[in-house]
């Protein structure tokens, strides 16, 4: 069976793709501002990737199924039901933990309980900022639920989330945000937005409407 989501995304015009990227930029900008307040230094944000990927290919986006990552999962309800999965590759997660705990970057080699709790909180804040941008863009109310965090192979972290949508969808939106501190420490954050087909169609409509403005 064909994936309508993919077809719909393939049909996006350049203008519409720009509109989607714009959501990414706005979200990334807000996330960077929030993070820079938390760690008390300037952060630049860029969005190297804003695209749709097939659910089974999600782990490859991050570097292969066995790549070690920290994943923060937030269930989403409100006008749309969906999930946000924020994935930090191991190196980015360690650097981010160092920044949050005011240590020299490169200190952490493993994450302790305080680190993971800080990362969960930061994941919550960053996703929250991104979602606020998305919900304004869509003109919809989105409610975030209490997140949970997993440190493991990305394949394993991702599969329980995609299973939730596997019966109803084949594609996810991915927005990759690159955050750079003034000391050139780079943190990669992968936002995976997962919705069912109907929800995805609603989002596409909003993107089209935006592109038409």
């Amino acid at each position: 069976m064909k994936s309508q989501w993919r077809e719909a995304l393939d049909k996006l015009t350049e203008l519409e793709k720009d509109a989607l990227r714009e959501v990414g930029y706005i979200g990334a900008g807000h996330a960077a501002t929030a993070l820079s307040k938390l760690i008390d230094q300037r952060i630049d944000a860029s969005v190297p990737i804003a695209a749709s990927v097939s659910l089974t290919q999600l782990p490859e986006t991050v570097g292969g199924r066995e790549e070690l990552v920290v994943g923060v999962y937030l269930p989403l309800t409100g006008d749309l039901e969906g999930s946000v999965l924020l994935v930090f590759p191991k190196r980015s997660a360690l650097a981010l933990a160092d920044l949050l705990m005011k240590r020299k970057v490169g200190t952490a080699t493993t994450l302790d309980e305080i680190d993971t709790s800080a990362l969960k909180e930061v994941g919550n804040i960053l996703s929250g900022r991104c979602l606020t941008a998305l919900s304004k863009f869509l003109g919809m109310r989105l409610i975030e639920h209490v997140p949970d965090l997993a440190c493991d192979m990305v394949g394993a972290v991702v599969d329980s989330i995609i299973i939730k949508f596997g019966q109803r969808a084949e594609q996810a939106l991915v927005i990759v945000v690159e955050l750079t501190t003034k000391e050139k420490v780079k943190i990669m954050a992968y936002f995976f937005l997962l919705f069912g087909l109907e929800e995805a169609e609603t989002i596409l409509k909003a993107i089209r409407a935006k592109a038409g403005e």
Partner: peptide, 19 residues
Amino acid sequence: GADMFPHIKHAPLEVGRIN
């Protein structure tokens, strides 16, 4: 069949066990 996010309160995933 692991549960990767056991602390989720809203709509627990539980798919591992069910699988």
